[in-house]
Design a protein around this nucleic acid. Sequence first.
DNA 1: TCGATATAGTTACAGCCGTAACTGTAATTT
DNA 2: AAATTACAGTTACGGCTGTAACTATATCGA
Lengths: 145, 145
Amino acid sequence: MKSEKSEFDLHRFLPFLMHHASEKVSLGFRDIYRDRYRMTRSEWRVLATLGQYGALTATEIVTHTGLHKTKVSRAVFSIEQRRWLRRVQNENDRRVHRLELTSQGQSAFQSLCEAGIAYDKKVRDFLGDADFKRLSDLLTKLNDL
Amino acid sequence: MKSEKSEFDLHRFLPFLMHHASEKVSLGFRDIYRDRYRMTRSEWRVLATLGQYGALTATEIVTHTGLHKTKVSRAVFSIEQRRWLRRVQNENDRRVHRLELTSQGQSAFQSLCEAGIAYDKKVRDFLGDADFKRLSDLLTKLNDL
DNA sequence: TCGATATAGTTACAGCCGTAACTGTAATTT
DNA sequence: AAATTACAGTTACGGCTGTAACTATATCGA
C-alpha cells in the first residue's frame, strides 16, 4: 500500500507554484507604482481601470477588476484625496457616483502605462514571445476554473 | 504619434493575469485547509514543508518556501500551540531549534496531502494533462526571473 | 580576550485585508 | 402609501502582513 505522502511535493503543487510565480511577477511591478507614487495594488488597479475605460461607477470597477468592493471603496477614497479623480453623483440614482480621472490622474496613469509596457517587455524578453503567449493564454483559461 | 495608453490593457497585463489566476487556484485550496483546520496559508506551508522534509530549522523553512521569516516564526508558534510540532534546541548553537511534527501534526499533513492531490487532479482535469504540464513548467521557469 | 559583526528568531508597530454590519436610496410588494 | 426587499457604497472590527528594531547567541578580527 502506497503512502499518499510520497506523492505530494509542495514545489510542484500548483497553488504553491502559481502563488510563488505571481508574487515574483506582480511584486516586480508593484515596486514601480509604490516607489513612484506610494500607491497600493488596489489603487493602481482602480487607476488603471478608470484610465482604460473612462468614467465608471464603483460597482463597475468591481466587475472589471474582481477587486473586493471594500478595496475599491478605500482605493477610490485615497485616489480622490490625491485629486486624481472626481465623483459625480448620478441624478437618477443618488446611491451611484460616476468616477472620473482628473488630468493629474490621467498623467499618472499615462506614466504608469509606459512603465507597465516596459515591464511587460522585460518579462516577455525573459520568457520569449512564444512562452509568454502560452503563459498568458493558460492564465486566461484558468479564469474559468 | 501613437499614445502609449492605447497599447495598455490591464486584462492582458501579466502581473494582473498572474495574480488573478493565482488567487483562483490558491484560494480554491485554501478553503480546504481553512475549513478543515482553521489554518492560514503560512501555517499550511510550514506544515507541508516539515511533513515533506522532516525536521528543519526555521531558517531552512524560509529557504524552502520563500516565506518571510516573521511569517514562519508566527506559523511555527501557532502550530506548536496546536501540539502539531515540537521544538528541540540545538546543543551546539542555542539560537537554533529543530522543528519536528508530532504524530498529530503528521496526521493533519497526511490528510491535507490527500486533499491536495485531489485538488491537483481537479485542476489537471480542467486544463488537460498537456496544458497542466506546460503551465507548471512556465511557472517554474519564472522562478528565475 | 574583547569589541565588532553576523546570525536565529521574535516582536512592536502601522498598514492592508475580508467579513459582517451598517447607511442611505431605490424598487417591489401588498 | 407603507412595508419589505434589494442594492451602492462605507465602516468597524479583528486578523494577517512586512519593516524595522529588538534579544540572545555565535563568530570573527585585532
